[in-house]
Design a protein around this nucleic acid. Structure first.
Length: 225
DNA sequence: TTGTGTTTTATTGCCTCC
DNA sequence: GGAGGCAATAAAACACAA
């Protein structure tokens, strides 16, 4: 017999049992355990095909259906009932496995997205610090009208977003330095004022970020999945 | 051939529903 | 209380590497 081939089975352990004519009660079989041990056989290909086909249309068939199917396959109704029960269990297990895989993929994607956003956040914070320093200089009058053009150039050269992303309303750019990114000098001053406001928000955000994404929490069982 | 892991068939105990 | 479902488990049948 080749590998994977079923042994020929034209009957089964129940065909000669004392249960002929009995109902599908699955809990009244202990008295014939010895019979089972001597005669257990796997179902043949045709029986499996029919059972699978029936399962596709109805996973929980009625008693009458199971009895008819059993008769047509030369099995005991009880065997058919057990087969459906086991099949439902296998099916449920496979379904759970599939759901787990999907969730894991989703979780992994979320993780890499988080890492990406974290890097972008870090880059933006650095830029914010630079902007704040410049704003302080403006406030202290360190930047004179005469020098504005020069400062503007410095700002332009310094304040180039490291991440140009449409998600943040920033233009996508191959070479950011060629873009007049900040606009006019008055725009810069406006941004500096905004920066002061943002620094407050930034502090709050960092606190919240730590609550949700603190690495120390990653050791929790939930995080590990 | 044999040891071991996997799949399939069957049992048992508990639970819910009518 | 009986019927039938499910979860956990046993055990036979099978697959396969060494």
């Amino acid at each position: 017999m080749s590998v994977g081939e079923r042994p020929p089975t034209n009957s089964n352990m129940w065909s000669q049992s004392s249960l002929l004519g009995k109902d599908l009660n699955l809990h009244s079989m202990s008295s014939i355990k010895n019979c089972k041990d001597n005669m257990r056989r796997r179902f043949n290909d045709e029986q499996i095909r029919s059972l699978e086909h029936m399962f596709e249309t109805e996973a929980r068939p009625e008693l009458r259906t199971k009895q008819q199917l059993a008769k047509s396959l030369g099995l005991q109704p009880r065997q058919v009932a057990i087969w459906f029960q086991n099949k439902r269990a296998r099916s449920k297990s496979k379904q759970l496995e599939m759901e787990y895989r999907m969730l894991k993929i989703s979780y992994d994607n979320l993780g890499s997205k988080y890492e990406m956003l974290k890097k972008e956040n870090e880059a933006l914070l650095i830029q914010l610090q630079r902007l704040r320093k410049i704003t302080e200089k403006v406030g202290n009058g360190e930047i004179q009208n005469e020098g504005n053009k020069l400062e503007t150039e410095v700002i332009k050269s310094e304040f180039i977003p490291e991440t140009c992303s449409p998600e943040f309303g920033l233009p996508l750019c191959e070479d950011s330095r060629e873009i007049d990114y900040l606009g006019t000098e008055s725009d810069i001053l406006n941004m500096a004022q905004i920066a002061y406001g943002l620094s407050e928000i930034e502090n709050e955000c960092n606190i919240e970020s730590r609550i949700f994404f603190d690495d120390s929490d990653c050791r929790s069982p939930l995080w590990e999945f």
